[in-house]
């Protein structure tokens, strides 16, 4: 079985909000001096793929990303945890890229690679779009399972465990299919061994060129919302006086 895992390189979502910079009129936030990381749900998807490979003789895991050369960092990480192959679909960084376009590019790569099972994170950690996985299934004309936390080989095909509000459901199906993965304690991405990390540096990253197909929804403008916080300290010697003053102030403000 050929397992393809889609990985996205994103701006570190742990960046403190006040360090998030966006030049006026730009559609892409400034990435200079900011760490770029593998989107966290994609890490879960990769772990699900690696675990499935361990249980299926002959299965391979191919990590695929869409992006500029710098995005190969996430592929190296995947190679370090022993993905078999790494493929980049070249494209310049552009957040105007809608989920639809990316899904089209990934579908092209999946066809080219002859993938049987495509794994995606449930949403990217930067824009939280949450569209690519299921649009990708649509593009490929394959069934798509959502909120998957783990996949096991079953007697008839694949057994997928999916998260529900309070509990989980189990789906059975056959490849080809697309599984959209969510996080769970069982699919935290493993840490790479040092020798594998060193070996990953020397491995080749392949390229597959796919022509982007026009998306129907486009990003028109992007701005950081301005929040105004007015803080007022209510005076008073003790609790009683403070409560009194607070009450008066709330009346003045017509809140009460």
């Amino acid at each position: 079985m050929q397992i393809m895992v889609c990985l996205k390189q994103i701006l570190d979502p742990e960046l403190p909000p006040r360090d998030f910079r966006l030049e006026k009129g730009e559609m892409t936030p400034a990435a200079e001096g900011v760490p770029l990381v593998m989107s966290s749900f994609d890490q879960n998807a990769l772990e699900v793929g690696l675990q499935l490979r361990e249980k299926m003789a002959g299965a391979t895991v191919t990590a695929v990303t869409v992006g500029p050369e710098g995005a190969e960092d996430v592929l190296r990480k995947a190679l370090a945890v022993k993905a078999d192959r790494a493929v980049r679909v070249p494209l310049e960084q552009d957040s105007k890229l809608s989920g639809g376009i990316v899904a089209g590019l990934l579908a092209g790569a999946a066809r080219e690679l002859g993938a049987d099972l495509v794994l995606c994170g449930r949403q990217a950690g930067d824009w939280d779009g949450g569209q690519v996985g299921l649009i990708l299934a649509e593009e490929l004309g394959w069934p798509g399972a959502n909120l998957v936390t783990g996949i096991e080989p079953g007697s008839g095909g694949l057994v997928l465990k999916c998260e529900l509000d309070e509990g989980y459901e189990v789906l059975e199906g056959n490849a080809p299919l697309v599984a959209v993965v969510t996080n769970h304690e069982t699919n935290v991405l493993r840490i790479a061994k040092v020798k594998d990390t060193m070996a990953a540096m020397r491995k080749k990253v392949e390229q597959i060129n796919v022509a982007p197909q026009g998306g129907r929804l486009e990003l028109a403008s992007l701005e950081i919302p301005v929040k105004e916080v007015n803080c007022e300290i209510i005076p008073g010697e003790d609790g009683v006086e403070k409560a009194d003053n607070l009450f008066k102030r709330l009346l003045e403000l017509k809140v009460l």
């Binding site: 570190d12 742990e14 960046l15 403190p16 006040r18 360090d19 760490p35 990381v37």
Partner: peptide, 16 residues
């Protein structure tokens, strides 16, 4: 590995 500091989840940056 990712950020060059060990404090995952910090709300601060090095210029805070």
């Amino acid at each position: 590995e990712d950020r060059g500091h060990p404090y995952k989840g910090t709300m601060a940056s090095r210029s805070s």
